[in-house]
């Protein structure tokens, strides 16, 4: 047991991460470091491995990690079950949020919030406090009250589902949020609402990884770093100007360079 280091450790450190599905290698050696307070954008063409990276970080079992390591707040992330990662503060915003008929949003969120509190050794949240928290966080993303009384994502429109993801993020207050194409399928107003929600939750203690296909979202969630993922590797990193360069030159520019 070593004494707690005074040197600030990165929140997330990914070293040479390789992952495959059904024997096909998708991630071919990812390296990425994310510190508290940072916003990282990961861009790349379809099939480059963006969503796979998000899923592997969240613990999806269908992907087999074949190499490398991931350290999250000093712990070995890959050895943790998905629910432990979540309770430790990792949040995955789904590209395609799942509909769960029969499970009410209220019951779902109460279970999630209290499972995390139990894990952290905190008492369960009382009904009144919980409902107040729901109300506050719904307002943050303009989520219709009637939606919160329905089954999880059931019959929600595309935009409602995405707003619901950010609502859940607001409820769970993650340290590291990974937003997988949260902008896809959103009109400009919904995009602003969602981005606004993310910005208001942002502080010096937490970090966000925004995965997106288009530069558009980055007008509203301004990244500190932009990475370009291509064929399972990060082939270029830079600041937000890289996103503009990509938008201008298109992904062919990356393809030709690699």
């Amino acid at each position: 047991m070593s004494a707690k280091s005074s040197i600030p450790q990165p929140m997330l450190e990914i070293r040479n991460l390789k992952a495959s599905i059904d024997g096909k290698e998708i991630l071919k050696g990812i390296n990425l470091t994310v510190n508290a307070g940072e916003v990282h954008a990961i861009m790349g063409p379809n099939g480059s491995g963006k969503s796979t990276l998000a899923a592997v970080l969240a613990g999806r079992e269908v992907f087999e990690v074949t190499g490398g390591e991931v350290t999250y707040c000093g712990q070995d992330l890959l050895s943790m079950a998905p629910e432990i990662r979540a309770r430790e503060g990792i949040f995955l915003g789904f590209q395609y949020p799942v509909e769960i008929p029969g499970v009410s949003m209220v019951n779902f969120m109460r279970t999630a919030v209290n499972e995390k509190r139990k894990y952290l050794g905190q008492p369960e949240m009382g009904a009144a406090d919980f409902l107040k928290l729901m109300r506050d966080r719904k307002a943050l993303v303009d989520l219709d009250t009637s939606l919160a009384n329905r089954s999880v994502n059931e019959g929600f429109s595309g935009g409602e589902k995405k707003r619901n993801e950010i609502f859940q993020m607001a409820m769970l207050e993650p340290k590291l949020a990974i937003l997988d194409e949260t902008d896809s399928g959103l009109d400009i107003d919904a995009l602003k609402t969602v981005a606004n929600g993310v910005n208001r939750l942002k502080n010096k203690e937490n970090a966000v990884i925004v995965i997106t296909h288009y530069q558009r979202l980055l007008d509203y969630i301004v990244p500190d770093f932009v990475h370009v993922l291509f064929d399972g590797r990060i082939v270029r990193s830079g600041d937000k100007r890289l996103a503009f360069e990509l938008e201008e030159k298109g992904y062919d520019w990356i393809r030709e360079a690699n």
């Binding site: 629910e83 949040f91 769960i100 279970t111």
Partner: peptide, 8 residues
């Protein structure tokens, strides 16, 4: 998986 990613 969706439920698990929320800590359940």
């Amino acid at each position: 998986f969706y439920l698990q990613t929320r800590g359940i």
